[in-house]
Design a protein around this nucleic acid. Structure first.
Length: 557
RNA sequence: UGGCCAAUAGUUCAGUUGGUAGAACGCCAGAUUUUGAUUCUGGAGGUCGAAGGUUCGAUCCCUUCUUGGCCAACCA
């Protein structure tokens, strides 16, 4: 392993220390534990890279464990999708487990807790229990059912399992301390009754363990050593430890460590919020390219490898942080620059007529597929007297520093000829609809024999052989850089114009692409071919655009 | 109001036996360029949240304060 690129952080240091002290006999095991109630997003990718990465680096293993303890929201589609997404990201679970695999063991352990007089059945409703929990500065109140005998509790708990009580009628609670300064320790609920169909256990169980009763035990059963989760579980750690300490376990118990979850500007990384976008139709689905989900990013053309590189780069710490989405994009560009084939596509076409081009003649130009990769070779691009160029590449009244096409100026057509604009045709509103140019036959291939230079090279597509394509251009999904900051509703800054669709003219080679391919439209950006319709392209990310910066500066000054 | 966690360039992070700060991205400038891209070179940018204390010496250790985050679901 290359030390230079091996990230170091407080978690890796801790594991090194544990290994040196032989805490787990030098063994390292982690897990990634999603609840299958939605698809994975970029925030999960950080956790996945961390957990699987740690296992790999320290010669251990990492399981995928579905935390399926709440039958209300979970289903098999999410399980399948999550497995697929992890594989796409480039990781392979050592094993795939389910918290529901452990329901019987968890139940037995709950009985043992009752036998130790460390848990009791409470008959009160959720609202009452919540009120009795007290506040941060006020002590809680003991439940009137807190002192039931072990035998009574055991009988009641067995009755809960057997279906003798209605949903919500009784819960099992840990007997810890209603006066604890940590609210999580004020007799947390361990089991609740829910007559819901569970996607794996069906109707076998009507009582379900809560997260707190399932998670640490799941870790222990799988022999996880380092249980890594996000910061908000920090206050659960004493409870995690309490549960394990009161079970008869054969080995060292796993150790929970918290890190700061990933936040990105202009992005929401909350499964619940993303779900509402899908459900209210704000986006086309979980795999909409505007979504920060792994499947959305995949459809958009984000390479998995670039996402992993990004995660390595940002590291892991305990301070809450929000990364600039542009940083992620820079990793996407860096990756795609090296790998994407170059093609020409005109997003907003403007007709160019070459007046001195021989009538009816057409020509083939040779173009380089990827200047960053010689092995990518070249291709033939048809050229003729009628072309499409980008509307932005011609200006009747050019702004300062504009050096693209304008009347009387010569520019290069990429891989083609030098052309000079002489005249325009306008419509009734004065809009330019056609530019008349002459070309210099001596400049075939893009060089002038007399050595004269042009300041600009523009892309083009021959009109006769142009292929029609639908191209989706994406902007930030949320206009606010920190959607939901303060007490605002993140959805209030949802950008209704996050997707703009244009009808483009593209070169013939783009008619022969496969779903999922990502190419560079020269001078514009990277575009991913839609997996279901190869005439549809999604703009993955634009190229860095110095000209846009110049214009922005002019506007601001 | 209580507890816990955090605070270093615009942003995210390094900075470990305590010796007054580095990287990446971004920004600016130059070179190269048949992509205003890429690549290369250089530059600007920090009273290390504040105030005390320990020490010959503190970004690092201690105290207090400030600011931000999390915690009072039968969600995870």
């Amino acid at each position: 392993m290359n030390d230079e690129h091996t990230p170091t952080d407080f978690i890796r240091e801790m594991i090194h220390a544990d290994n040196e002290s032989e805490k787990y006999g030098g063994r390292v095991q982690t897990r990634f534990p999603p609840e299958p109630n939605g698809y994975l997003h970029i925030g999960h990718a950080k956790s996945i890279c961390l957990n699987f990465g740690l296992a790999e680096e320290f010669g251990g293993v990492c399981n995928l464990r579905f935390d399926d303890t709440n039958p209300v929201t979970e289903d098999q589609n999410f399980v399948d999708g999550i497995i697929e997404d992890i594989q796409w990201l480039g990781f392979e679970p050592n094993d795939i487990r389910y918290a529901s695999d452990y329901f019987e063991q968890l139940y037995q352990w709950a009985e043992s807790l009752i036998e130790q007089d460390l848990a009791y059945v409470d008959d009160q409703d959720a609202e009452t229990i919540s009120e009795q929990r007290g506040g941060f500065t006020t002590p809680g109140v003991n439940s009137p059912f807190r002192d039931r005998t072990v035998d009574e509790n055991l009988a009641l708990f067995r009755g809960m399992r057997a279906g003798e009580y209605a949903d919500g009628e009784k819960v099992l609670r840990a007997k810890i301390d209603m006066n604890h300064e940590n609210m999580q320790m004020r007799d947390p609920v361990l089991y609740r009754i829910r007559r819901e169909h569970h996607f794996r256990t069906g109707t076998d169980w009507i009582i379900f363990p809560t997260y707190d009763w399932a998670h640490g035990q799941g870790d222990a059963i799988e022999e996880v050593t380092h249980s890594i989760c996000t910061l908000e579980f920090d206050s659960h750690r004493p409870l995690y430890d309490w549960c394990l300490a009161n079970l008869d376990l054969p080995r060292d118990t796993p150790e929970q460590t918290e890190f700061a979850r990933l936040n990105l500007t202009h992005t929401v990384t909350s499964k619940r919020k993303l779900k509402s976008l899908v459900e209210d139709g704000s986006v086309d689905g979980w795999d909409d390219p505007r979504m920060p989900t792994l499947r959305g990013m995949r459809r958009r053309g984000y390479p998995a490898e670039a996402i992993r590189t990004f995660m390595d780069h940002i590291g892991v710490a305990k301070s809450n942080s929000t990364h600039d989405i542009e940083l992620l994009e820079s990793f996407i560009r860096t990756h795609l620059n090296k790998t994407a084939l170059r093609r020409m596509g005109v997003l907003r076409p403007l007709k160019v007529v070459i007046t001195n081009w021989p009538e009816g003649h057409s020509d083939m130009r040779e173009a380089i597929n990827n200047p960053e990769d010689e092995t990518a070779g070249t291709r033939q691009v048809p050229f003729s007297g009628e072309l499409w160029i980008e509307q932005d590449d011609f200006a009747l009244d050019p702004p300062p520093k504009y050096y693209r096409l304008t009347i009387g100026r010569e520019v290069r057509l990429r891989a083609g000829y030098f052309i000079t604009a002489n005249d325009v045709v306008t419509d009734d509103d004065g809009n330019v609809v056609e530019v008349h140019c002459t070309y210099d036959p001596e400049t075939a291939g893009g060089q002038a024999p007399d050595g004269r230079k042009v300041k600009a090279t523009i892309h083009w597509v021959s009109a006769a052989t142009a292929v029609d394509a639908t191209v989706h251009l994406y902007d930030r999904l949320f206009t606010d850089s920190h959607p939901g900051s303060g007490d605002t509703d993140p959805l209030s800054s949802l950008n209704p114009n996050a997707r703009e669709t244009v009808h483009a003219k593209v070169e013939p080679a783009l008619g022969e692409v496969s779903g999922g391919d990502v190419v560079q439209f020269e001078r514009l950006g990277y575009f991913a071919v839609d997996p279901d319709d190869t005439s549809v392209f999604h703009r993955t990310v634009g190229l860095r655009d110095e000209w846009a910066n110049i214009q922005k500066r002019r506007k601001n000054s």
